[in-house]
């Protein structure tokens, strides 16, 4: 079963807000000068912001804010965020992979930005009761 794809815009303002909310003030997420100095194409999104947006998708698919039991990702590519009004967009999709012995559902998740997969091996195990409803 494919779950409905979700799209999340990410702007520089979102990165600043996330830095404050999470406590991750690494300058690669807000300082262009610093980011390019360490060899990045520019300011990039926090990997944990990408994971948080995927978490949003997962709880929405599961139909409950407390349905997630296990959640894992590998950050395979950076998410550059241009310094303009529209920023970038992360597209999150998932397929039901299997059901565990306990009856929980395992989702295989894909997150794409600018045509490239930015996560690999992204998985979430959720309580199944309201999935897809």
């Amino acid at each position: 079963m494919d779950l409905p794809t979700k799209k999340y815009p990410v702007t520089r303002a979102d990165l600043v807000r996330y830095a404050g909310a999470s406590g991750d003030f690494n300058p690669i997420h807000w300082n262009e000068r610093f980011a390019t100095k360490v060899g990045l194409p520019g300011v990039i999104a926090h990997g944990m912001l990408t994971m948080a947006l995927v978490g949003r998708a997962v709880t929405e698919w599961a139909g409950a804010p407390d349905a997630v039991l296990d959640f894992s990702v590998r950050f395979s590519r950076p998410v550059p965020v241009p310094d303009d009004e529209s920023g970038t967009e992360i597209e999150v999709s998932a397929q039901v992979k299997n059901t565990t012995e306990e009856g929980h559902t395992v989702l295989a998740i894909t997150a794409v930005c600018g045509g490239e997969k930015v996560l690999s091996q992204a998985r979430a195990t959720v309580r199944t009761s309201r999935l897809g409803k």
Partner: peptide, 16 residues
């Protein structure tokens, strides 16, 4: 720390 990149992240939850 200037050479550190976040590779993987996993959470296992008992409760929210």
């Amino acid at each position: 720390y200037s050479r550190v990149v976040h590779g993987d992240q996993r959470f296992q939850y008992t409760r929210p």
